[in-house]
């Protein structure tokens, strides 16, 4: 099950924990992967770990020109583009009353606008081959909000609307578009929480723990697979029951 042999997948934010796990999962199922991110070193070491079928494609998603060029570079390197995973994201957390326009714009540009641009460019080769998978990484906060994250939660909620509309437009061409919305996942960021903070957090999560990057990656792998061909426009929540929606 979930054989991606011969498929080419572009993963943004592959230098981060979740992005790297997604790239490993897709690669493990046989896909050729394009690893994109801003930090070249972790991308290079991930590519070295994966061995063959891995291409490093550095890109600053805050730079519109670089974003426009990325799908072309990906196709040139991999020979196609069948699966797009928009995983990259930044945060500029700030209480709403103190949030600057810049904090808003930076988050929108990277988390929402760049994803739109990459989807737009990716749909073209997917339409031609009558097969494609778009998986956008959302967040539980796009559904339930989070103090300090007005910009981030708005961008993640926006990603869901964008994904659904794309799903409508391209469904007859064998292309699906879905969102995977992680809850709290073990990352270097959440490692910094102290025991009290973790206890408070766990009280809200029925599973009483954080999720792992691999658990997010498994959801992406499913939605990227041929088996998920009839699943489109949906959001798959991976949050331990934090929000049952």
């Amino acid at each position: 099950m979930f054989d991606l042999t011969g498929k080419c997948a572009l993963v943004t934010g592959a230098s981060g924990g979740i992005g790297a796990a997604i790239a490993r999962a897709l690669h493990g199922a046989g896909a050729t992967v394009g690893l994109s991110g801003t930090r070249v070193e972790p991308l290079e070491s991930l590519a070295a770990e994966l061995g063959s079928r891995a291409h490093v494609l550095p890109c600053d998603l805050g730079n519109a020109e670089a974003v426009e060029a990325l799908p072309k570079e990906a196709i040139a390197a991999m020979g196609g583009l069948d699966i797009l995973v928009n995983n990259a994201g930044i945060t500029r957390d700030q209480l709403f009353m103190r949030m600057s326009d810049r904090d808003w714009q930076d988050v929108m540009e990277v988390n929402l606008t760049s994803a739109m641009r990459l989807c737009r460019a990716a749909v073209r080769p997917m339409m031609k081959s009558r097969w494609g998978r778009i998986v956008n990484i959302g967040s539980v906060v796009g559904s339930i909000g989070n103090p300090g994250q007005v910009n981030y939660s708005a961008a993640k909620a926006g990603l869901e609307g964008l994904t659904k509309s794309i799903a409508h437009e391209v469904a007859t061409r064998g292309i699906t578009a879905n969102v995977v919305a992680p809850g709290f996942i073990e990352t270097p960021m959440t490692d910094k929480l102290n025991e009290d903070q973790k206890a408070t957090l766990y009280a809200k999560i029925p599973a009483a723990r954080m999720g792992t990057s691999d658990e997010v990656a498994a959801a992406v792998l499913y939605l990227a697979s041929p088996e998920a061909g009839y699943v489109t426009g949906t959001t798959l929540h991976v949050n331990g029951g934090l929000a049952m929606i």
Partner: peptide
Amino acid sequence: ADSLDTVELVM
């Protein structure tokens, strides 16, 4: 043709 077909034809 539907509207998407016209886009594909142009492509």
